[in-house]
């Protein structure tokens, strides 16, 4: 199967790793957190405050706030806007992302 990287003849810089819920994933430089998670086959990284439903990217351009995620302890980061960096600790954001204030 052809990949987007092949389509544009990409020669990315050296890959690095981050963790998502303690699982190590490989990331290409120049990808957002959302792109890195999609590339690893992950499509949800938040549960809603009310019914705890899974969510991930919806608008992809920073408008909808559905892709909120916790990065290096900071909650409510829009995964589609924030660049992934080596060693990032990414966690599924449950509810508001603030401990003790779930739901």
């Amino acid at each position: 199967m052809r990949s987007p990287l092949e389509l544009v003849g990409a020669r990315p810089g050296p890959a690095f790793t981050v963790t998502f819920d303690d699982r190590e994933i490989t990331v290409l430089p120049g990808q957002t957190i959302a792109a890195a998670l999609w590339a690893a086959g992950i499509t949800s990284w938040r549960t809603t405050r009310g019914s705890g439903e899974p969510r991930g990217v919806f608008c992809g351009i920073g408008v909808c706030f559905d892709c909120l995620v916790t990065v290096n302890g900071r909650a409510n980061q829009r995964a589609c806007l924030v660049w992934a960096e080596a060693g990032d600790v990414i966690r599924t954001q449950e509810g508001t992302g603030h401990r003790g204030h779930h739901g």
Binding site: L5, Q31, C59, C80
Partner: peptide
Amino acid sequence: GGAQAMLKGGLV
């Protein structure tokens, strides 16, 4: 548009 943006920008 989001699918397109993620493809154009992140190649995913």
